[in-house]
């Protein structure tokens, strides 16, 4: 039987799904809702200096980059399989577009975090 590359992909999918479920709503509420509403009232939330100082801490930065990576991986997995479920003849090209862009996104996040050091 041909070896499948599904198990490691599924682990990343599961990690991303769990993380998005545990922290997704709170993070979106903070950066997407609290930041603009506070800005309207003249309060600065997640300002440049403070955020930079925070994310320049190696542990925080690496955790953020890896978190973004697994959530992108989670979405790539679901989008790829849903396209197939919808009847699209998704071959190698679509596979690479989904998982490849997740991998590139992860690398960009790691690069940006390292640039903060």
């Amino acid at each position: 039987m041909k070896r499948s590359h599904e198990p490691p992909l599924w682990l990343l999918f599961g990690a991303g799904g769990l993380l998005a479920a545990l922290l997704g709503p709170a993070l979106i509420l903070l950066t997407g809702v609290v930041v603009p509403v506070a800005a309207e009232r003249g309060v600065e939330v997640l300002g440049y200096e403070a955020t930079r100082e925070l994310l320049a801490r190696p542990l925080v930065g690496v955790l953020l980059a890896l978190s973004l990576g697994v959530v992108l991986w989670h979405a790539a997995h679901r989008i790829y399989h849903t396209l197939r479920d919808l009847g699209m003849r998704a071959g190698q090209g679509v596979w690479w577009a989904c998982y490849g862009s997740a991998a590139i996104g992860t690398l960009v996040a790691i690069g940006a975090v390292i640039a903060l050091w």
């Binding site: 994310l55 959530v71 989008i79 903060l116």
Partner: peptide, 23 residues
């Protein structure tokens, strides 16, 4: 449920853009 992942990905990419602009 599966489609909700597209919005999660959009948000992750948005945070990624913020991270790159921070750098």
């Amino acid at each position: 449920r599966e489609g909700s992942s597209a919005l999660l990905a959009a948000y992750a990419l948005w945070l990624l853009a913020g991270l790159v602009s921070l750098a």
